[in-house]
């Protein structure tokens, strides 16, 4: 297993800054003549710094949930409050501010900027969040994810695992209290995937709320809390069955 540094970045926000409230949230899509209920009456409250895994099969609505929490999308009905801000009624500018200062994304396919080096990609996160010490933060975070030696490499010169670590570092460099990860291990091999989970776990232990969306039930074993979705409905919410497992125990 890849050993990752274990000195997470401090969150800038306190407990209130990580609070997520979804009340009777629905998100419907019209596809031709059909209405697809991606989320249907979901109620969810996250008020602690934790490693939360949203589990579900393909089409269960988990990515839609992540997009709503991340202020990338708006609900058809219901209320979403994030760090005290009502996203349901927020203006475009307010949602942009939420994305800039409250949540950070980690994508399945990394979405690194191909024209920037690893270090510059990480610094992008710090810059967007308006951190005055962006250069120092970027260097420190890149070192924390074990890629100080790859700082000057471009995305195409990095392996998949390295690219995902850069993507995580970019999200961490924002200093935002909530990390939203969409299938962060989806394109990675087992060993690299586990290392990435380790890294995300450490962020939760350091006070951030980490919301990981996955269809991989094995990953939910290391979560503090597992939320399971099926056909747009929340069907389970609680600690993993059988208690939280150690990361070293994971197998897939």
């Amino acid at each position: 297993m890849t050993v990752l540094p274990s000195s997470p970045v401090d969150a800038r926000a306190g407990a209130e800054g990580t609070r997520i409230d979804l009340d009777d949230v629905c998100r419907y899509f019209e596809v031709g003549d059909t209405v697809v209920k991606a989320l249907d009456g979901v109620n969810l409250h996250v008020d602690e710094s934790a490693f939360v895994v949203v589990l579900g099969a393909s089409g269960s609505g988990k990515t839609t949930l992540l997009n709503l929490v991340g202020a990338l999308d708006a609900p058809t009905s219901g209320t979403i409050r994030l760090a005290g801000t009502d996203l349901s009624t927020a203006s475009r500018a307010q949602r942009t501010r939420i994305r800039r200062n409250t949540v950070s994304f980690i994508f399945q396919s990394f979405n690194l900027f191909p024209g920037l080096t690893a270090l510059e990609n990480v610094r992008f996160g710090a810059d967007v969040a308006g951190r005055a010490d962006a250069a120092d933060v970027a260097a420190r975070v890149l070192e924390q994810v074990g890629l100080a030696g790859r700082a000057e490499h471009f995305a195409h010169q990095l392996s998949g695992g390295e690219q995902q670590r850069v993507a995580i570092a970019r999200a961490l460099a924002t200093g935002n209290p909530i990390l939203l990860a969409d299938e962060p291990t989806g394109e990675l091999d087992f060993r690299t995937g586990v290392a990435i989970l380790q890294l995300l776990r450490e962020q939760a232990e350091a006070g951030k709320t980490v919301l990981v969306v996955t269809h991989n039930r094995e990953i939910s074993r290391v979560a503090d809390r597992v939320i399971e979705l099926s056909s747009g409905h929340l069907v389970a919410d609680g600690p993993p069955a059988g208690g939280r497992a150690a990361i070293d125990d994971l197998r897939w």
Binding site: S109, L112, F113, P114, G115, L116, F154, H156, G160, E187
Partner: peptide, 29 residues
């Protein structure tokens, strides 16, 4: 491959790697 288009070679961009970059990173883009 999904990432194929995004992760293609850096062209001539590496030539600028050693240049001191001032200001915010995205201004380099």
């Amino acid at each position: 491959r999904v990432g194929h288009l995004a992760a293609r070679g850096g062209g001539l961009a590496p030539l600028l790697r050693r240049l001191p970059s001032r200001g915010r990173s995205y201004r380099q883009i």
